[in-house]
C-alpha cells in the first residue's frame, strides 16, 4: 500500500472513509474529448474504483490544443479516443479498473452502459445524447453531471433524480442550431473550469458528501470576467415528461433513433449500420485496395478517400463521411462501399 491518496485522505471531508467509498464506485464518462479527458484524468487520479469512458470518434490535430490525454502520434495514427484515453489512464493509475468503449451512444447502448453505474459524467458535445442521459438517469435513478463549454463560456449542473430538477425541466425546449455547435471555437481554460465544476461535484457525491453539493446551475465567462450561479430548485416540473409524476422517458424510445447524424461543427456525417455488426476491416481493406483506393489502417479503424471525401469505417460498422453535411450524399457514398 503506497500513499497515493494521502493528500486526499488528509482533506477532512473526504478522509479515509470517503476514499474507501470512492474506491467502490463506478463512473461512466460519456465523451472522450476535452471535457471527457479532463474529467477522466482527475477521477482516475482520485481513485474512483472503476471508470468507463465512451467515445465514437478518433483523435484529430484540432483536438490537441485542449484534449489533455492525446499526443501528435495519436492524431497521425487517427487512434480512437476511447482506446487511447484508457491506455493513458491505466498508466496514470494501474490500481483501478478502466474500461474503453468505442461506440455511438443511442437509447439502445445506454441501457447496458449504465448497468451498475453510480454516476454519469456528461462530456458529450450535443443535446441528443444529453437528453438520452437525462432520461436514463431518471429511469434508473443514477445522478449525472451536465457540463458544456463554448468559446470562453462554460456551464455545469449536477442532476440528482428525485431531488433536483432534471435537464428537461430546465430547458423546456432543446437548444438547436448555432447555440450548440462549436463553430466559434473554444479555449482550454474554459474547458478546465467546467471540468473543475463537474469533478468537484462528482467527488462530493462519490465520497458520501451530498450535503456539500452546490445545487446550483453555474456558468462563467473567462473572457468577460463573469460568473453566475442560480438556485434552480423551483424549476422542477410536476408534469415533466422525463422526471414528473407520469414520466415516460421520451428520449429512450427507439423511434427517436436515426441512422445518420451530422456531427457538430465537424463537416462530417456519421452513418450507423441497420443493425449492430462487427466489420471485418482486413477483408474490407483488401476489397477497397483492389478497387485502386489507397487504404490507411490502424487496429480500430480504416480510412480511404473516394471522390474528395474521406470515409472512416469502425469495427462496430459505423462509418464517418468527412467533407460533407449532406446526409443524402453521405448515404449514397456509404451504400456504394458498404452495401
Amino acid at each position: 500500500m503506497n500513499d497515493r491518496y494521502s493528500r486526499q485522505e488528509l482533506f477532512a471531508p473526504i478522509g479515509k472513509e470517503g476514499q474507501r467509498r470512492l474506491g467502490e464506485r463506478h463512473v461512466l464518462i460519456i465523451g472522450a474529448g476535452a471535457l471527457g479527458t479532463g474529467n477522466a484524468e482527475i477521477l482516475v487520479r482520485a481513485g474512483v474504483g472503476k471508470v468507463t469512458i465512451v467515445d465514437r470518434d478518433y483523435v484529430d490535430w484540432s483536438n490537441l490544443q485542449r484534449q489533455q490525454l492525446y499526443t501528435e502520434e495519436d492524431a497521425i495514427q487517427r487512434m480512437p479516443k476511447a482506446a487511447v484515453a484508457a491506455e493513458r489512464l491505466k498508466k496514470i493509475n494501474s490500481s483501478i479498473e478502466i474500461e474503453a468503449k468505442i461506440m455511438d451512444v443511442t437509447p439502445v447502448e445506454i441501457e447496458s452502459l449504465t448497468e451498475g453505474i453510480d454516476l454519469m459524467i456528461d462530456a458529450s458535445d450535443n443535446f441528443d445524447i444529453r437528453m438520452i442521459m437525462n432520461d436514463i438517469s431518471q429511469k434508473k435513478q443514477i445522478p449525472w453531471i451536465y457540463g458544456a463549454v463554448l468559446g470562453s463560456y462554460g456551464i455545469s449542473y449536477a442532476i440528482i433524480p428525485g431531488k433536483t430538477p432534471c435537464l428537461s425541466c430546465l430547458l423546456e425546449t432543446i437548444p438547436i442550431g448555432g447555440a450548440t455547435c462549436d463553430t466559434v471555437g473554444v479555449i482550454a481554460p474554459a474547458v478546465q473550469m467546467v471540468v473543475t465544476l463537474q469533478t468537484a461535484e462528482a467527488l462530493k457525491w462519490l465520497t458520501g458528501n451530498e450535503e456539500a453539493m452546490s445545487g446550483r446551475l453555474t456558468s462563467f465567462d473567462l473572457w468577460k470576467n463573469e460568473y453566475a450561479s442560480i438556485r434552480v430548485d423551483k424549476l422542477k416540473k410536476e408534469d415533466c415528461p422525463s422526471c414528473g409524476v407520469r414520466a415516460q422517458y421520451p428520449f429512450l424510445s427507439a423511434s427517436n433513433l436515426s441512422r445518420t447524424a451530422v456531427l457538430c461543427g465537424r463537416d462530417t456525417v456519421q452513418i450507423r449500420p441497420p443493425k449492430p455488426q462487427s466489420l471485418d476491416l482486413d477483408a474490407l481493406g483488401e476489397s477497397l485496395s483492389s478497387l485502386g483506393l489507397k487504404v490507411e489502417r490502424n487496429p480500430y479503424l480504416l480510412a480511404f478517400q473516394p471522390d474528395h471525401r474521406r470515409l472512416v469505417a469502425f469495427r462496430d460498422g459505423r462509418v464517418l463521411v468527412h467533407g460533407t453535411k449532406d446526409t443524402a450524399e453521405a448515404r449514397s457514398l456509404y451504400h456504394r462501399y458498404f452495401g
Binding site: G33, L35, V149, I155
Partner: peptide, 10 residues
Amino acid sequence: FEIVHFVGGG
C-alpha cells in the same frame, strides 16, 4: 440579474 444560458460543446 443572474443570467445563465445553455451551450452544447464539450
